[in-house]
Design a protein around this nucleic acid. Structure first.
Lengths: 330, 330
DNA sequence: GGCAGCATTGCAAACGTTTCTGATGTATGT
DNA sequence: ACATACATCAGAAACGTTTGCAATGCTGCC
């Protein structure tokens, strides 16, 4: 059916091995025959069968990306950047959505792992020992998850949060609420960083939650913010912040005049909201590049220079933050 | 390195062919040996090498999905639903983002086509003849693109648009603006359906554009809406609608009191905006299921019952539509 | 009791590719 | 001129799997 290397060989009047060499290691064949082969391949529209190549080579030229939920607008830019980066290095990216469920994650890894040369696991929910075990069998890069002996890209919110605290402090805010949307996930670093940064700036911080990172969580949090007489809210992410904005409007609280709101992630939501959302940006291109490069390094047997790669963050001040109200209404 | 079928055969004391049969066609082997084989496979953690299987079988058990831009919030739910549907039937889904560029689309198809058994091409920008040619070489399902002789899933906005016209008419609107964000893409059906529906309801319709389907397009359109003395806007999609909302607020026009706004797609944006956006919903699960089932049918050599499968739409009335203002300010 | 038929299993080919091992011819150095 | 080296290519093996074919042993029927 499809045009194989044998057909090209026959068309060019050489053996299959010569065709293979002409295409893969051109220096090893005579210039004239190489041209004949290339011309024949071109004319017949030959493209190598990746299954056969994989079988022989033991490599698939594909990378896997496992994410908790592609519906979270944080991930599409990540996927896009990773795909771009992978393509540039000759790899195809295979994404899989684990739907935030540990069982699905295991199943998906099983289905995908043999089809790729390595895996990027984003915020994996698997237990440590399983991850360690997996990482011994194949190249694995973790993002936002720490396991001894496994390579990792760590996105640090420290800088962005410090800037947010500075920003709110400068605007005269004193009482802030943090809406924790981390649910029951293992990683508690977000909450800790925020506590540290706000303490450092002498801002009083009220933590509520943990809840799930959903729009409704923000809706739920809005009246609590007013009840706590706070003038600023830092939400777990942009989606939660949108819920806060929505319900503050329903409650008649003006943003940013009465309450300032800060999100995290700088997703599409933040730039299209009204008013546009002040948020903490994590550069998707950077984390994607780091993760892909690290993984490809592992695939090629190059151990990482550092066990964990850090990626920073920064505040993007927009329309939902402003001077604190001197006389909170209630 | 990895555990092969040969290792299982040795462990179970049988030949490789028996192992293969015990796992794939259990009826053909003795119950006792089958159990030995299954036990051995389980114990060694055997999973078949998909490359070898593909090579032998000529099938990859994967499907490809090509979309213009995963960053468009319309697509993540589509992807998720397709992945789910494909998984249930034993297929892996390989997504690729063509970045709205025809050149990238070609390149991506070339990179992906040999790794999958069939392709879903969403709103392809390729010329007709290339698509027809591709569809002859492998199973192809088009979405929102029509080419003679190629299977297609067509999402029809007709119902949703009719409901929107009805909705606006009932609220007393008379002059409406449609913001065309179709750019230079071939498919003009959206614009035509809208013209037809609004004419049918006796609503005067002012079309502006075509522009690109971006937030900024909505920002650009907002003052035009006011200048045209319209009381309602139908935007090309939710993203454009968000731009309209944003800029109307900046211009001091209240939504929905002064102007009503309707989006299309019912993406996450619509449900989290303030006020929440009235929009036309296309059920992602339905179109995803239809496309995947159709494609798998083609892969298995089953020709489609109908050349084109229709998927409907409906209006989701929310907070951005209301009674028309009797005395437009300007 | 012999033979047909069936259940069960092993052997070997095949899928398309890469690469190792030689073979052939030509150029080079002495 | 002869041996050596090198450039160039063909042949064949190997990757892991499925499956057609053949071999074996057993059952059951006449």
């Amino acid at each position: 059916m499809a045009v194989t290397i044998g057909a090209v060989a026959k068309a060019a009047g050489v053996s299959v091995s010569t065709v293979s060499r002409a295409l893969n290691t051109p220096d090893l064949v005579n210039a004239a025959t190489r041209q004949r082969v290339v011309a024949a391949a071109e004319r017949l529209g030959y493209t190598p069968n990746p299954a056969a190549r994989s079988l022989r080579e033991g490599r698939t030229e594909s990378l896997g990306l496992l994410i908790p939920d592609i519906t979270n607008p944080f991930f599409p830019p990540i996927f896009k950047a990773m795909q771009e980066r992978a393509k540039r290095q000759g790899y195809t990216l295979l994404v899989a959505d684990s739907d935030e469920r540990e069982a699905d994650e295991l199943e998906t890894i099983a289905a995908v792992s043999k089809k790729v040369d390595g895996l990027v696991l984003w915020a994996s929910m698997l237990p440590e020992d399983r991850l360690a075990e997996l990482a011994e069998r194949m190249p694995v890069v973790l993002v936002n998850r720490q396991v001894e002996g496994v390579s990792e890209v760590h996105v640090s919110l420290t800088d962005g949060i410090a800037q947010a605290a500075e920003h709110l402090k400068a605007y005269g805010h004193q009482r802030c609420v943090f809406v924790d949307g981390n649910g029951n996930r293992p990683d508690q670093s977000r909450s800790k960083s925020i506590r540290a940064a706000f303490d450092a700036h002498g801002l009083s911080l009220i933590e509520i939650g943990p809840y799930e990172p959903r729009f409704e969580t923000g809706v739920h949090a809005a009246p609590l913010v007013l009840a706590h007489q706070a003038t600023a809210v830092l939400a777990h992410n942009d989606l939660v912040a949108m819920g806060v904005l929505h319900q503050l409007a329903a409650l008649g609280a003006a943003v940013p005049n009465d309450i300032s709101v800060v999100g995290i992630d700088d997703t599409l939501l933040a730039s299209v909201s009204t008013p546009s959302l002040t948020t903490i940006r994590i550069d998707p291109d950077e984390v994607a590049s780091r993760a892909v490069d690290l993984l490809i390094g592992l695939v090629h047997g190059r151990p990482p220079a550092l066990p964990v790669v850090q990626v920073g963050s920064r505040l993007i001040p927009r329309g939902t933050t402003g001077p604190a109200r001197r006389d909170p209404r209630q």
